[in-house]
Design a protein around this nucleic acid. Structure first.
Lengths: 154, 154
DNA sequence: TATTGTTATACTCTATAACTATA
DNA sequence: TATAGTTATAGAGTATAACAATA
């Protein structure tokens, strides 16, 4: 006489999450988790966090940018940008220079060392990016960037 | 004789961030910030955070799911799931029931109140989602979900 | 009065180590 | 020994209030 096994504790089950997957927001969130992990792992080598990398990038592309414009471009709150810049300045990666015109304003620029580090970090960032989207064709990658941009560009 | 104006403090400039925008990861990050803000605002009405909403959703779709499977499905660390469930259970939205087979396992289910709240919250979530992707056609929305899923589905 | 940037601080999210009880 | 779940805690990220200096 065979005994009836206990009800499954669904030990090896995969959960159905179809309602969540219908939401674009949830798909963005999950993708963000994956790409963030890959990015952080690459960036560790250069001792840079995401926000720090993006600061270096925008400062490099906009030498002498002021902090307000920088904070706005990166969607970072001004108090958090201040401490971000403190760290990067202490590491000798950038400089803050008081404006001669409006003395409230500070102009931010990369140092040579900052530009050098950013150059290396950009390659690492591109590598992480590639790893995350390895399953996408070149056309799909372009498409993805375009679609996402419609969400956050005003 | 006209005086020369001081160098621009780029007061109204927009920063060039083309190198960042080439990275899919950065586009995901920025979109995530936008959609998250819309989502949170909608969810406030139901006193639910993102992680709490996703727990309710997966439990509703998988009644009796155990915590390990739930944690894995949502990419939430077990200790954080435990405190998440504490709060939801204290609010009477779900129950944890010790398995009769394996007494280490707990089975999670929504209460009637939990199911009711989730029903309302899902509508709010869909509204936030729609607001974020209002510029996308139906075909583009589908496309976006498909592309993103290729990043985080193993 | 408004703006740029700072300091201090609090809150949330996420991650890890150490534990329990069961298997 | 390994697994399910918990507790405690630390860290990072983000947000707000109050301030100083300048416009």
């Amino acid at each position: 006489m065979s005994s009836i096994p206990p009800l499954s504790d669904d030990s090896n089950d995969q959960a159905d999450q179809s309602e969540l997957l219908d939401l674009v927001g949830y798909n963005i969130r999950r993708s963000y988790i994956v790409i963030q992990a890959l990015f952080d792992k690459e960036m560790e080598k250069h001792d840079l966090r995401q926000a720090e990398f993006s600061v270096l990038s925008v400062v490099k592309g906009n030498p002498g940018i002021n902090q307000r414009t920088l904070a706005e471009a990166l969607a970072v709150a001004p108090p958090n940008l201040a401490t971000l810049l403190d760290r990067l300045e202490a590491r000798g990666l950038l400089t803050r220079q008081r404006s001669t015109g409006d003395k409230r304003v500070q102009h931010v620029e990369l140092t040579k060392e900052g530009a050098r580090l950013y150059g290396r970090a950009l390659k690492a960032a591109a590598a992480a990016d590639d790893a995350a989207i390895e399953k996408l064709s070149e056309a799909e990658r372009m498409q993805l960037r375009t679609l996402l941009r419609k969400i956050f560009i005003e």
